Amino acid sequence: MTTTIEWTEATWNPTTGCDRISPGCDNCYALTMAKRLKGMEQQRGTARPKYQNDGDPRTSGPGFALTVHPDTLDAPVKWRIPRRVFVNSMSDLFHARVPVDFVTSVWRTMASTPQHTYQILTKRPERLARVLEQVHGALGLEEPLPNVWLGTSIESDDYARRADALRLAPAAVRFVSAEPLLGPLPSLDVTGIDWVILGGESGPGARPLELVWIRDVIGQCRTAGAAPFVKQLGSVWAKASGASDKKGGSPEDWPTDLRVREYPAAA
């Protein structure tokens, strides 16, 4: 499926649904979208298998229970044009309830479609090394797939440790998504990290972003050799500055030094 996410070109959701585990999840767009999609299909008298299972209301919501979809595993095989693919824009592939066998099936599809580049983002990087050891063993892989990028979300300094867990996982490219960035990241170590996405929050209840937080992380990237990618500055900043894009996503509105959208050298 095509997407408007600036740093990728398509999305693929072999699983859907998730559970909130940290403040970066509070305004989850996927949770809100799942509720809307479920309601739309009910009104039409049809049902989307992806959005019919309700999650725990304390951590999830309508249509957003963790659900695996084996029927979607071959979707990238049918895409003739090579593309960057965000895997699970509506879920987390390394959620505890995703079976290792299913993760192995996802890896098998990615191995069979080397023309695509897959970007996998998780808030649960502690599972990466352990699960991937089993996946690589099942598939007989001695090296990480060169077309698979592994990333973790870090929204505040309380979760900077996620980068440490990411470094332990076998990956051709490792990346951090600091979006939504909710505070400074003085403890973040981007050694061994190839790419850092930075962005503010948008939508209802958006929390503010201080530009100095982004500048500091860009400086860390320059020191460590990571590529920074500023996605947006958020709706709070956009409103305060009178930016043309309500999400603060138009670089022409930004200070010149923040107009940075680089990709990792390995790309």
Rank of each mutant, 00 (worst) to 15 (best):
M1T: 07
E6L: 04
T8S: 14
T11I: 05
P14Y: 11
R20Y: 02
S22M: 12
S22N: 15
G24C: 06
N27G: 07
Y29I: 06
A30Y: 04
A30P: 04
A34W: 13
R36Y: 08
K38W: 07
M40N: 01
Q42G: 07
G45E: 08
G45Y: 11
T46V: 15
Y51I: 04
D54C: 09
D54H: 13
S60A: 12
G61P: 04
G63N: 02
P70M: 04
P70N: 05
W79Y: 03
V85G: 08
F86Y: 13
S91L: 06
D92A: 11
R97S: 15
R97Y: 11
V106S: 03
W107L: 14
T109N: 06
T109D: 02
A111R: 15
A111C: 10
T117R: 15
I120G: 01
I120F: 00
L121N: 09
L121V: 07
P125S: 14
L128D: 04
R130G: 06
E133L: 01
V135Q: 07
H136F: 14
G137I: 07
G140W: 09
P146Y: 10
V148Y: 01
T152W: 00
T152K: 05
I154Y: 08
Y159N: 01
D164W: 05
L168H: 01
A169W: 00
A171M: 11
F175W: 15
A178E: 04
L181Q: 15
L181D: 13
L182A: 03
P186M: 01
D189I: 03
T191M: 04
A206V: 11
R215P: 07
I218W: 06
C221S: 04
C221L: 00
R222H: 05
T223E: 15
G225H: 10
A226K: 11
A226R: 01
A227T: 03
A227V: 06
V230S: 05
K231N: 15
Q232Y: 13
L233E: 07
L233G: 05
A238W: 00
S241C: 05
S250K: 10
P251S: 09
P251Q: 08
P251K: 10
E252P: 00
D253H: 14
P255W: 07
L258E: 12
E262S: 12
E262H: 01
E262C: 02
P264W: 05
A267K: 04
